[in-house]
Every structure is written in structure tokens, then in C-alpha cells.
Nucleic acid binder design. Structure first.
Length: 423
RNA sequence: GGAGAGAUGGCCGAGUGGUCGAAGGCGCACGCCUGGAAAGUGUGUAACCGCCAAAAGUGGUUCAUGGGUUCGAAUCCCAUUCUCUCCGCCA
């Protein structure tokens, strides 16, 4: 969430910048400021009353200790009176804080000034494009046919044991999947990321910390018996490792990589997008997460963009980078680059990575801060990116590398798969 | 699932009603000592919210969380959550 200080000191700017996200925040912002005024007023009153009764209690204590307890009677009555008035002020303060927080969590993050305006994915800005779209042979087919032909992924079996969106990988399909995970992890390790194996379930506090709760709770699988959610991405547990943490400048940058399965309900997604591997309820992903000082977060975003670019080059997939416009960028993000690979048989661009800078938005929710050299608290900035999400990468590899004699394996993966052809 | 113990500052750990935001130690920071380091030694070392233009200062809150008793609670009472140990079950 945005900090109160930012909202108070930059009222008009906050409103103007949220317009780029297609949000009119005027009413919310003014309500927050008004509630904060009430809060301050009530607190001042409460503080003054508490100060008085603290002083009286001290006096009474001295009287009792010097054996003059009977002289304290009048003072005691005074504190009772003060206390009830203080309770009233406190109640008013707490009411204002609660209402204020309810509104605060509804405000999205401010988009970076360079984020293009726009209302939908059509207005996103293509900032980079690379690679050659392969010429497929005459009998080339989409991946959902290939996986059947070579018996490497079985969607029907998944339907049987779970339901739609939970495919079963088998044989060389399973091994290719595992190879991709290891390849992505090894690449990140080589780049200096420290590996984490996170829990796959999270509590509500973690979901709130990274911004999935309260607004996106319908997108996560929920286990009521234990009040836990299945992770939609490793971002949630990994970033929340730093919830309620105060970092030293020497801890920065924090750089983590984590493989995890990801679970998404995808409520409301139907149609052609869900065909084959394009959209699943359970999928694998390797995620990179960084925590930096405010001045380093945008250079870090570029660094992460470069890193993901390198992965796609090594896999030999044609891709483009899209800078999301205000209308398409997520609630929590200040700037996001999406990476899309071209899946040659579907003839579609598929999103395989999303790299975002959240600035202090998640850190504010999580109480993640940095204590600088002079002892001052400054907000931390958090970033993350997929590096990479597996199913669509797999789809693109299968489609783009298909030949009449079988599916070739990209060179970089052969040491991991142990085979160079699926036939 | 059954029984018991516990939750205090960055960490360990003392503290059973009054100047306790909290002894002591560790860690950390700065200084002294040293040719340099270690050891030794001295000083300092919580967060949050107000007031103040700001620094200084100052008021308030915080000893798991929420409530209660009391003039006064880390300390007493109740509830909740979590952790640990033993037993049971189990990859």
C-alpha cells in the first residue's frame, strides 16, 4: 500500500498518477486524509489524558510507599475520571485508524511516470523484439496434438485424477520439465541468486503482504480447515521471508531464486486461451525475487529484464518484451515488463514472464524496511520476475522445434535431459 | 489426536504489582590500547504514533494477541494464537 506520508504530502500527484491506472482515487484519498486528521486529533487528546493519569499514578505510588496511602484517595478518583475520557478518545482513534486502513488497501500502487497510458493489453508498448520465427514443415501441429502424438503429456489423465488444468507429464515430457527447472535454477545460481525452497501454502498475513489479499483471494485455492492458501507463485512465500524485517544496507541487494509449483483457480478464464498448456491450474515456475534500496530498484528492474532476456536467447525462442500500460499493469506494480514467446504452430505470442518493480508497495504492507547508515528508516523496494514459467515455454519449444522426425531439444537443455530428440 | 511446558529487546536470558523500555551477557557501532590485528577496556545501541518548520527535545504506545482486575500490570485473572517436549500416528 501507499504510505500515509506519500498520500498526505502529494495528494494531487497521487490522484493524477492513479488516473493512468484508470482509477479515480479522489474520493479515497480525501477520505484517508480526513480520517487521519480525526486520528491525530483523538490521539493528541488521548496522549494528554494518559500523561496526566500516569503522573497521578506515580504520585499515588510515592504516597503508598511512604505509608501515606490514605492521602491518595482523592487522586485515585481523578485517575478514574481521566481513564474513562482516555478510553473514549482511544475508541475514536481506533475507529478512524481502522476505517483509514480499509480504504488504504483499496488504493493501487502508483505507476512509474514512464508507464504509458492505456486501457487494455492493446495499448501495451512493445519495447523489444528478437529472434526468428521458425518456418514449420507442412504437417506441423500445435503442442496439444504433439503431446498426444509423442505421449509426453496426458490431459485426460489429469482430468481423471483431479480435473481440467492439471496435466500429467510423462516419460520424456516429465524429464524435459525437470530439465527446464534445473536449467533455470542453475542459470540463476550462476548469476548470484541464492536458492530457496519455500512452503507451497501460505497464511493470510503472507497473502496480504505481497498484495494477493484481500483483493485477489478468489484466485487462490483456499483450505478452510487450516485457514491456508496454496501459493499462486513463489513470490508470495519468498518475499514474505522478509516480512517484519529491518535490513542493513550491507544486506542489500537481497537476491533469491525459487522453484515452486504454482496454483491458480483462474476463475472466469474460458475459451481458446485455456487450450493445452496455455493456462493451467497447477504449473511449475522458477521465480527471482530482489529487495533493494529505493535508488537501486529501477536499475535492478533493468538488470532482471536483461537476465530473463538471456534465458530466452539461450533457449532459442523468438520473443518480445512488452511494457505494460496503465490499464493492464497489476494493482501492486509500479512498472512491469512482460516477456512473450512466439509459439509457431498456434501462431500466438504467449506470456512467459512478468518482471515487476513494486517499489515500496509490498514493503509497506509487510513492514519491510532498511535502516541506513545514519540510523534512519527508509522503505525497501521489492521486485520479482518469472525466470521462467514452464508450461508456455514448453509449448513454444515443442511447437517451434518440431520436425518431421520428432521434436528437437534446444542445445542448452541436452545436458539436462540426456536426450536430444523426442520421437 | 492425548499430556505437559513456554512465548520478554537483533540474539540469549533475568525479572511475581509501583521511577521497568526492562538487569546481565552476546552481537553491533564508535573510541582507547596496538606497528597492525586479536585480547583487553570505555561509551553507546528498540520500534511505532503524536507535538515541533526541522534537529534538539518532549508526550503516548509496545514484554505473543485480545479482554479483565487495579490509582498503577512484563508481573495477577480469562480467552485466543503460536512454539517446544513426551506419547500416538506417519513420508
Amino acid at each position: 500500500m501507499l504510505s500515509l506520508q506519500v498520500i498526505r504530502e502529494n495528494r494531487q500527484e497521487v490522484i493524477d498518477r492513479l488516473k493512468i491506472k484508470q482509477v479515480d482515487a479522489t474520493e479515497f484519498v480525501d477520505r484517508i486524509i480526513r480520517l487521519d486528521d480525526i486520528r491525530r486529533e483523538s490521539q493528541q487528546e488521548m496522549d494528554a489524558l494518559n500523561a496526566q493519569s500516569n503522573a497521578l499514578a506515580k504520585e499515588i505510588g510515592i504516597l503508598f510507599q511512604s505509608g501515606k496511602g490514605d492521602e491518595a484517595k482523592g487522586l485515585k478518583e481523578q485517575t478514574v475520571e481521566l481513564k474513562s475520557r482516555s478510553k473514549e478518545a482511544e475508541a475514536s482513534m481506533e475507529k478512524a485508524v481502522k476505517e483509514m486502513e480499509e480504504v488504504m488497501v483499496l488504493l493501487p500502487n502508483l505507476p512509474h511516470p514512464s508507464v504509458p497510458p492505456g486501457t487494455s493489453a492493446d495499448d501495451n508498448e512493445i519495447v523489444f523484439e528478437e529472434g526468428i520465427i521458425p518456418e514449420l514443415h507442412g504437417e506441423a501441429v500445435p503442442h496439444w496434438d504433439l503431446v498426444q502424438q509423442y505421449r509426453i503429456i496426458d490431459f485426460a489423465l489429469g482430468n481423471k485424477i483431479t480435473g481440467a488444468g492439471f496435466p500429467v507429464y510423462q516419460g520424456k515430457g516429465a524429464r524435459l520439465q525437470r530439465a527446464l527447472i534445473n536449467f533455470f535454477l542453475d542459470q540463476a545460481l550462476e548469476d548470484g541468486y541464492a536458492e530457496i525452497q519455500p512452503p507451497y501454502m501460505i497464511n493470510a498475513a503472507s497473502g496480504f503482504g505481497t498484495g494477493q489479499l484481500p483483493d485477489k483471494d478468489g484466485q487462490m485455492y483456499y483450505v478452510p480447515e487450516d485457514d491456508l492458501y496454496l501459493i499462486p507463485t513463489a513470490e508470495v512465500p519468498v518475499t514474505n521471508l522478509y516480512r517484519d524485517v529491518i535490513l542493513k544496507p550491507s544486506d542489500l541487494p537481497v537476491r533469491h531464486v525459487a522453484y515452486s509449483a504454482c496454483f491458480r483457480r483462474e476463475a472466469g478464464s474460458y475459451g481458446k486461451d485455456v487450450r493445452g498448456l496455455n493456462r493451467l491450474h497447477q504449473f511449475d515456475k522458477v521465480e527471482i525475487v530482489q529487495i533493494t534500496s529505493p535508488e537501486n530498484s529501477y536499475p535492478t528492474l533493468e538488470e532482471m529484464r536483461k537476465y530473463v532476456t538471456g534465458l530466452l536467447r539461450k533457449l532459442g525462442l523468438p520473443f518480445r518484451i512488452v511494457k505494460l500500460c496503465g490499464g493492464d499493469i497489476s494493482f501492486t506494480s509500479a512498472m512491469t515488463y512482460d516477456f512473450e514467446v512466439f509459439s509457431a504452430a498456434q501462431k500466438r505470442w504467449l506470456e512467459v514472464s512478468s518482471v515487476s518493480n513494486f517499489e515500496a508497495f509490498q514493503a509497506n504492507r509487510m513492514k519491510l524496511r532498511i535502516k541506513d547508515e545514519s540510523g534512519k528508516m527508509i522503505p525497501a523496494h521489492t521486485l520479482n520476475g518469472s525466470a521462467l514459467a514452464l508450461p508456455r515455454i514448453l509449448a513454444a519449444i515443442l511447437e517451434n522445434y518440431q520436425t518431421p522426425g520428432g521434436i528437437r531439444i534446444p542445445d542448452v537443455l541436452i545436458p539436462y535431459t540426456g536426450f536430444d530428440l523426442i520421437s
